[in-house]
Amino acid sequence: MSILVFIDQADGHIKKASFEAATYGAKLAAQLGTTAEALVLGTVSDDLSTLGQYGIKKVHTVSDASLNKMDAAVYADVIAQAAGQATVIVLSNNTTGKAVAPRLSVKLKAGLVSGAISLPDTSQGFVVRKSVFSGKAFANIAVKTDKKIIALNPNAFGTETGAGSAEVAAVQASIPASNVEVVAVNKVSGEVPLSEADIVVSGGRGLKGPENWGLVTELAQLLGAATACSRPVADIHWRPHHEHVGQTGLAIAPNLYIAIGISGAIQHLAGVNRSKTIVVINKDPEAPFFKAADYGIVGDAFEVVPKVIEAVKKIKAS
């Protein structure tokens, strides 16, 4: 019995969410008295032995360049081949994980918990807590099958590193032909991907128009943050759709979420309420967002945010 962690990569680099999955896998292995191994698909330039610092003992690689393209059918097939006797497979519940994990679940007859947020309770069976109702509640899910798959929510678990170096070895796998032909790829480069960001600065309709977004982007840049927006802002094309967070957009859980000119409608909160710290800047003291916030400033964003930017500059310089 062992644990296999699927490590997702993009452009040759390990995704941050996969380090969280590695940490989770290693802790689970310790809990179950076994070891955690990892699987990496495609060509990777990062030094994979460093996964040892996250507690991974051995890294299996299938470094075929065709695997740089994610096709759920191909990935699930290759992961299933590499899984061998592993009883628990851990993936990040990112876009790759969401595409692959369900196929793998059917293929291996392994019960899937997607959106897991903590280690299983193995005192009676195997019960994993996951996020439900768009972050408004948790469910404890019992997995009844012998093999299990856990898709861990990004930013839910954190990473932990120590000393250690993992053995890296190529594993034999036959790669099925893909039925998906990629015509064009459009990577959002140079920006922090929203789903992985530690800090997110987000703007709502209170910012009045796209010409005022400099406030959001400048603060974000200073903090090394990603930018987001409320749904109406994306709907009226002030900002691109991929920035839309909330119940019908992306659900995120950064360490810090700064909401500027967003009222805090229940559908918006559903996508951001797992953030560890929430700051709200809104001119209306009755804005519902303040009830969900940790820190707040009641004031006009056009006056307050420039001052916050200055204050951050000062603290960054000191």
Partner: peptide, 17 residues
């Protein structure tokens, strides 16, 4: 393959500062 054992609500926020 799975079943819900129980649900929980997240702890309430301490209140805004």
């Amino acid at each position: 393959m799975t079943s819900v054992v129980s649900f929980e609500l997240p702890p309430a926020k301490a209140g805004v500062k």
